[in-house]
Simulated scan of single mutants.
Amino acid sequence: MKTNYIFDLFTYHPDLFKACPYVDNAYPMADESYLHNYPFKITYLFDLKKLPHWDTDTFDFISIPAGIPQLSFKEKQLEYFPQEEDKAGEFDVVLNTSRTWPSRSWAPENWQRLADTLTAKGLRVAVVGKDVVSKADHMEKLCFALKGCTNLINKLSLDQTFFTIRKSKVFVSCQNGLSVLAGATDTRIVVLDMSIEWSKRAIYRYENPHHKISYVKGKCDLYCGEANACPLPHNNGSFKCIPEYERVAAAVSDALAAA
């Protein structure tokens, strides 16, 4: 709801806020000398000197404290304001097969098995995502297509990805940026909760991090966050924190039944 106040936002991603009804203007982040001469009162939401996440490609702003202890769950709720016209197709289930660190990636054969199960039921399934090279750790973060599914990898803008997820009944993903984007929709979400404890990446809807969201974890409660150096024995890259196929498939089935 607009007010008589002027609310200008300085951010490293001003394009994300062009359609936001709560912001009058969104500008690229300027240097401090300019900000000090800005004619209005300035409130810093993040101390970038202490939290330099803006310099990476995976800015998880939901899990970073904003430095304002009075923020409620409702005020943390994610919103996304697309600028493009909705041109997305409609699917029953949308999958994001993104592979990153071994302890945070589901095996390709599990994704294909899930896709086969869903398409065998006559469900329309699409795969979304984008291949990127992380500036932070120089890691290739890749998605892979699945047989029998519509391949939309590297074919959609962020807005069209948002529309595609929003139109689906269920969205399935690991803990990553698209699971956060999905939180701005009302679609049911299944998050593969691996080496990062779920509450650190909680998606708040209606002040409830479990509203239409299922966090499916493996058989490890350490949540060490390790990329390659798991403190527990594992075989051939199989980490205990990675959820088994049966648990994920059951969560997807329950989400579809409730959709």
Rank of each mutant, 00 (worst) to 15 (best):
K2F: 11
T3K: 15
T3D: 08
D8Q: 04
D8I: 00
L9V: 15
Y12C: 14
L16P: 01
F17L: 13
F17H: 13
K18W: 10
A19M: 10
P21W: 13
Y22S: 11
D24R: 11
N25G: 05
Y27W: 13
Y27F: 13
M29K: 14
A30M: 10
L35H: 04
L35R: 05
H36I: 06
N37S: 14
Y44Q: 05
D47F: 08
D47E: 13
L51F: 14
L51N: 13
H53Y: 11
W54I: 10
T56P: 11
D60M: 08
I62N: 12
I62P: 02
P65K: 09
P65C: 02
Q70N: 10
Q70D: 11
L71P: 10
S72Y: 08
E75S: 01
E79C: 10
F81Y: 13
E85Q: 14
D86L: 07
A88M: 12
G89H: 07
G89M: 06
F91C: 01
D92R: 09
V93D: 05
V93L: 07
V93T: 06
L95G: 11
R99H: 08
T100N: 14
E109D: 03
E109I: 12
N110G: 11
W111L: 06
Q112V: 12
R113N: 02
R113W: 04
T117Q: 15
L118A: 10
T119C: 15
R124N: 12
A126I: 07
D131M: 03
V133Q: 00
S134W: 07
S134H: 12
S134C: 06
K135W: 01
A136E: 09
D137T: 04
H138I: 06
E140D: 14
E140Q: 15
C143A: 11
N151G: 04
N151P: 12
T161H: 02
T164G: 03
I165Q: 07
K167M: 02
K167S: 10
S168T: 04
K169T: 02
V172I: 06
S173L: 00
C174G: 15
G177S: 14
L181S: 14
A182N: 05
G183E: 03
G183V: 01
D186R: 11
W198S: 14
S199C: 07
S199T: 12
K200V: 02
K200C: 05
R201P: 03
A202H: 05
A202V: 04
R205D: 06
P209Y: 01
H211V: 04
K212Y: 02
K212F: 00
Y215R: 12
V216K: 05
G218E: 00
Y223W: 09
Y223M: 04
Y223F: 14
C224Y: 11
G225H: 06
E226L: 11
A227C: 12
C230D: 05
K240Y: 02
I242E: 05
A249K: 15
A249G: 12
A251P: 03
A255W: 08
A257M: 05
